[in-house]
Design a protein around this nucleic acid. Structure first.
Length: 491
RNA sequence: CGGGGUAUAGCGCAGCCCGGCUAGCGCACCUGGUUUGGGACCAGGGGGUCGCAGGUUCGAAUCCUGCUACCCCGACCA
């Protein structure tokens, strides 16, 4: 089976690319570095959006929309921020085309040069804070808790479907607060919200922690992140939340009057998750037969495949299958009855496995006679036959069980591939051969981090929040260390 | 931006070295029939500016020059 996919063991990269394309999630477009997200992939994104949007609104955030274009001058207001993004910006310089004088095609009209170039947003802090200046005068205007669903552009050298493309979709939150403490709490609240969203819906276990200086967002005082482990032993940052201090408020002169009549700059956060999560989803759960989707995010949770001989056979099965479909749909389950006569059952089985549909129900003449159905679960590929009347009990609990099971499996994998080490040679071995996370002591200096990266390609993924104080010696330099940090090679 | 590779039907490829009839194969597609409990079979059929632009030649998918795009590996990054 699954002879259409490259095996994971053969080439993880190739397996991933094959899967994204063959499962119909996305494909490369005619535009360099940009993908087309196909309906099935977009449906997964919509499910993610739906849940995350609900969680954000439940915590008091509201949606808004800011421009795609950012005047170049805005960008240079915050020094660290420009520096961080300067190398990957797309820039609009003209606003008109005209017919080429030689009659061949069309050219940029040199007369139509913009006074000031526009940057296509790689992130929206600058345009948003420029706007917030007008929205905030008093502590009564705070906190300002805004989210936007948008596309952003970062001109990447090398792209990979979902993981790194020149344009991608995300949500970015931008909040303003009266106090530093309140802003820090917001950044932490969102990180926790991301973590529980990713663990509960995507069924991906994550570490939460603080980034080191070199991994920090350009313009942030502090960056928090959730980090997940992919099946090939590489880490993937699945969401970030930044405490921006007063950096952007100062750069854009956003001040407010507090209860005591005192004027001060506001405190800020920003945070985001992107379509990259779809890449994380694939690389956490899927196998050589195709996608494995967590039931909570699967666009189709249950598929019913009829098995019959001849046209009358099909008509005999139909009402039976339709009845099961309806009973599940009434429970709010997304169920599809695939009654196409153009494909054979075996073909459909393979197809839905490739697409990661969590539960498959097969109904044939045999089932009709015995009042049964055959149920197959995607995660384990196990099949079982149950009484048709029990479907409404069995399937919902099976969906729950699959959701739990794939999380547990991913968690077990992560635990088995998270190593605590105090030995440099072992550390190198983990990074070069075994893969996975290494919890090791680190002296906290930029130079040491850089050196470790040069030697092993590993970076500090985060300083985990739940790591307890534990004195030790830096894995590389032997300098004193206060606690262990999480290292890995990363996407 | 460095190194490697590829570009021929919707997809995957052969043909290219050593130029020569109508450019071929598998999958997919269309028609008809037989099939249907793990990617069915038979018969027939449609589909190509051989990435683009020049050049060499009686003749170019094939040789030469230039360009472009994409993929993989590095450096950089969510």
């Amino acid at each position: 089976m699954a002879k259409f996919l490259t095996n994971r063991e053969e080439s993880y990269t190739q397996w991933y690319n094959d899967l994204v394309i063959k499962a119909g999630l996305a494909e490369n477009s005619a535009v360099r570095g940009c993908m087309v997200i196909k309906p099935y992939g977009y449906a997964i994104w919509e499910k993610m959006q739906g849940e995350l949007d609900k969680l954000l609104k439940a915590t008091g955030h509201v949606n808004a929309y800011f421009p795609l274009f950012i005047p170049k001058s805005f960008f240079s207001r915050e020094a660290a921020h420009v520096e961080g993004f300067a190398k990957e910006c797309a820039i609009v310089t003209h606003y008109r085309l005209k017919n080429s004088p030689d009659g061949k095609g069309i050219i940029v009209d040199p007369e139509a040069k913009l006074e000031e170039e526009l940057i296509i947003r790689p992130t929206s802090e600058t345009i948003i804070w420029n706007t917030y200046r007008d929205w905030i005068q008093s502590y009564r205007d705070l906190p300002l808790l805004i989210n936007q669903w948008a596309n952003v552009v970062r001109w990447e050298m090398r792209t990979r479907l979902f993981l790194r493309t020149a344009e991608f979709l995300w949500q970015e939150g931008h909040t303003a607060h009266a106090t530093s403490g309140e802003a820090v709490n917001e950044a932490r609240l969102i990180l926790d919200l991301y973590a529980s969203f990713v663990e509960n819906y995507l069924a991906i276990p994550v570490f939460r922690g603080r980034k080191t200086e070199s991994e920090r967002f350009a313009g942030a005082v502090d960056t928090y992140a959730i980090e997940a482990l992919m099946q090939d032993g590489k880490a993937l940052q699945a969401g970030t939340s930044h405490f921006l201090g007063q950096n952007f408020a100062k750069a854009f002169d956003v001040r407010f009057t507090d209860q005591n009549g005192k004027l001060d700059h506001v405190w800020a956060t920003s945070w985001g998750t992107s379509t990259r999560l779809i890449g994380a989803l694939i690389m956490t759960h899927s196998d050589n037969n195709g996608l494995v989707l967590p039931p909570k995010l699967a666009p189709v949770q249950v598929v019913i495949v009829p098995i019959y001989k001849g046209g009358e056979g099909a008509e005999r099965i139909r009402p039976y299958a339709e009845r099961i479909k309806e009973s599940l749909a009434n429970l709010g389950i997304s169920v599809k009855f695939d009654d196409r006569d153009t494909q054979k059952p075996g073909w459909k089985f393979a197809e839905y496995e490739l697409k990661g549909v969590p539960v498959r129900i097969a109904v044939g003449q045999r089932d009709l006679e015995n009042n049964t159905v055959e149920i197959a679960r995607r995660d384990t590929l196990e099949k079982t036959t149950i009484n048709a009347d029990a479907v409404v009990e069995y399937v919902p609990s099976l969906l729950d069980e699959i959701q739990q099971a794939i999380f547990k499996k991913a968690l077990k994998f992560r635990e088995e591939n998270t190593f605590t080490t105090d030995n440099w040679d072992e550390f190198v071995d983990i990074m070069e051969n075994r893969g996975g996370f290494a919890l090791a002591h680190f002296d906290g200096s930029r130079e040491t981090e850089e050196k470790i990266k040069d030697l092993t390609k590993a970076t500090v993924r985060c300083i985990p929040f739940d790591s307890h104080d534990e004195k030790g010696k830096c894995i590389l330099t032997g300098n004193p260390s206060e606690r262990r940090v999480l290292f890995a090679r990363a996407y």
